[in-house]
Amino acid sequence: MHELAITQGVVDVVTARTGDVPVAGVRLRVGRLSGVVPDAMRFCFELVTAGTPLEGAALEFERPEGRARCRTCGQDFVLRDPVLLCGCGSADVEVVAGRELSVVSVVLAERRAVT
């Protein structure tokens, strides 16, 4: 389950910025084509945050939809799954959104200066 390693990355990314300040909430951006399952991250989050400043933090997800641009007809369209096919029949499409995988922001549990 790669979500375990990726969720460990959440703790690393956040504590690199906020140190030992307790965190009450974490907002992630997980694109719908990223290959990462938010439910699995939620499951792992509890495990990897135990004993860290993120323990007990609420987890929220932004889920950008997949979007692609067709190189044949120039149309921009929503990509509901990773099968790359434009309505015009062309498979020559470029994925322009939906693969995002990042920490957007955190909410601190107490007021403290963070650089």
Binding site: R17, A57, V103, V107
Partner: peptide, 14 residues
Amino acid sequence: GPTGDVVEIETALL
């Protein structure tokens, strides 16, 4: 929904 200070992170997880 927590309501404390928000810190923007915007860092890729990988």
